[in-house]
Nucleic acid binder design. Structure first.
Lengths: 352, 352
DNA sequence: TCTTAGCACTCGACATAACCGAGTGCTAAC
DNA sequence: GTTAGCACTCGGTTATGTCGAGTGCTAAGA
């Protein structure tokens, strides 16, 4: 649903001109002249009239002239207007072929969450021809299905936290050995006790719950789990289609491309970006300077949250140049988010 | 250890000239002229003599002239000679700072193999300023420490294979329910039985071992595990420093860079490449057209295997432009492989 | 036979100039 | 408010010239 625009309203023809410029520039990558606008859009006015309108649009900051007497190029604000003032209530439907690709990708079941998210990032990058990122919800939100304590060859203990989603986190703890036998029956007992007692507790609450038993082993395990959870509080990020952003028709210049790829590579940066979108709760579009990452000021990012149910959310989205087919890309991101939702959140199945 | 060169032997001065050209070209990126060779290397001969030598080196295919009367640039064969005929018995020591970085990175323990390998790829890319790849050994080689069967909300069963390294694989199997109670006591029993019986068995041999019991549940689990193992027979690949390859002083041209990044992104391609190196069992250098990947013919790759003990190996390495500081990069790859070895293979600790 | 100085030659890099044409803003008429 | 006409601007392209690094060749020297 388009948000109300904050920019001054445009009369009908100026709006049409601006839309035409955006469409044409996205298509060709060349500055758009007044003649091109009149030709490709049956506005029944002459090029001179369009020129007057374009002058006004430039004053308003929607378009920009790279140099005197070149055509016009949309500014970030121009794209923003284009997106916010999309005329119909819905983004366009995806072409049949892409729909099929998406449906096909989600047809066969995944054996675990990681595999599903990695595939999704791949899929999304292919459909949008941009770079895709998908975040897994921070594992601390998951609920324990089983806890395992495993003896390591170095005498220490591996802790496995297994979630209902199949997510597994591991850590290491040092426990004074209670017996020299192998396998250690006490360890099995402890595993069983903790596993039973903690079933259904969210990872982030495990340490607190364990600590209610005051003996040394419980204390040690609690503090090890607390540390694990602190380490994993960040979202895990999956990337797909990094090479897409290097197409010669995207960023002409290698330095910009390097900056963008470098930023996408840093999990902390992407994770932060995705987190903003998650909390927004709806599809979110940042254009150019709106992107809260310095190196990505020549990019547009389109993110949408998805739901795993049980208060766990993640985000997925794409990163591309500001010169992007927004309607199509937004539709694609929404469609993939919806499909992923259906796959992962069984509680939503009824309203499919 | 340098391999014997297959190319014709060079007399002492021509060898020095070729080395000088390689060094100089790697440093500056500009074609190297006869004067530059005489100036920067106190060969006590004039530029004209060098020119004669360069003519011979060109006839032999070691160097190449981009155009009439430009300087010379090493060919793939030239780099190959340079690497194969490294004069001393050992590659150079790494500078103090880099040694410290590597040692520091491996100082604190990792909680699991994935984390260790991901960090290693990051580290390697930083030290070499190239793109690094690290493969995990295919999980089918791991030995089972514990097997878990977990009831899913949809009625099916999640199978978890937990290895001694902390590697966890999961799959899904459909079992006819033996009881409606929750938790299913039979499932716990089955878990316990399989876990005990299969401890220490390699993943790839699990299905066969289970099948010796002929009842329906065992059969179903065996075939599910067989399928899991088949799906995971490929190595898992970790990448680091993809953006490094986009530095303007590496590949000038965006299309080449895109091809390389696109190839690095495909796990199957990288995995295959790494597999070649693994089976070689030593540090391996492919230069330019030697790289068995079409899109990487303008790259050099340097790989080295590492060992997890118990017949499990992986590979790590870097991918960069053929114009690369080979001695330094080879040293770095070897050093990181050695450090990773020490970290992961306890059986090697004694000969540290 | 190998090395060297000298020299004419080649060709990319760079600068300059001319031209073309798409696209503009302005003005005056409709 | 719209339009036709027109002078003007400026990047892209092409043509031309100059510069200089680097070459190969030749003839003399060791």
């Amino acid at each position: 649903m388009p948000r109300p625009t904050t920019a001054p309203a445009l009369d009908k023809r100026k709006a049409a001109v601006l839309r035409a410029i955006v469409r044409e520039y996205v298509r060709t990558g060349q500055p758009v002249g007044s003649k091109a606008v009149t030709e490709r859009n049956r506005l029944q006015v002459s090029a001179a009239t369009i020129r007057n309108d374009m002058g006004v649009l430039e004053d308003l900051g929607f378009i920009h002239q790279p140099f005197t007497s070149a055509g016009r190029v949309p500014t970030d604000l121009g794209y923003r207007w284009f997106v916010d003032n999309w005329p119909s209530a819905h983004w366009p439907d995806l072409p049949r072929r892409e729909r099929d690709v998406i449906d096909g990708a989600f047809r066969n079941p995944f054996s675990d969450l990681e595999e599903a998210l990695a595939s999704t990032s791949q899929l999304l990058s292919e459909v949008t021809d941009a770079t895709a990122v998908v975040s897994a919800p921070p594992s601390i939100k998951h609920r324990l299905q089983r806890l395992e304590l495993l003896a390591r060859s170095d005498g220490r203990i591996t802790i496995l936290l297994i979630a209902d989603t199949g997510v597994v986190e591991q850590g290491i703890v040092e426990l004074e050995p209670s017996a020299e036998t192998e396998p250690d029956p006490d360890l099995d007992l402890l595993t069983r006790e903790l596993s039973d007692r903690l079933k259904g507790v969210a990872f982030e609450d495990l340490a607190m719950t364990i600590e209610s038993r005051p003996d040394g082993r419980h204390k040690a395990i609690a503090s090890a789990i607390a540390k694990m959870v602190a380490d994993r509080s960040q979202q895990r990020v999956f990337r797909g289609g990094t090479a897409n952003i290097l197409s010669p028709d995207k960023f002409g210049d290698l330095a910009t491309a390097q900056g963008v790829v470098g930023a996408i590579e840093r999990p902390s940066i992407v994770s932060e970006l995705l987190e903003v979108a998650r909390s927004a709760g709806t599809v979110l579009v940042f254009i150019g300077h709106e992107v809260p990452v310095e190196k990505m000021h020549s990019c547009a990012v389109i993110f949408a949250p998805y739901d795993l149910g049980d208060d766990r959310q993640g985000t997925l989205g794409v990163i591309g140049p500001t010169r992007m087919d927004y309607p199509h890309t937004i539709s694609a991101v929404e469609a993939v988010a919806r499909s992923l939702n259906r796959l992962l959140d069984p509680s939503e199945e009824k309203n499919g």
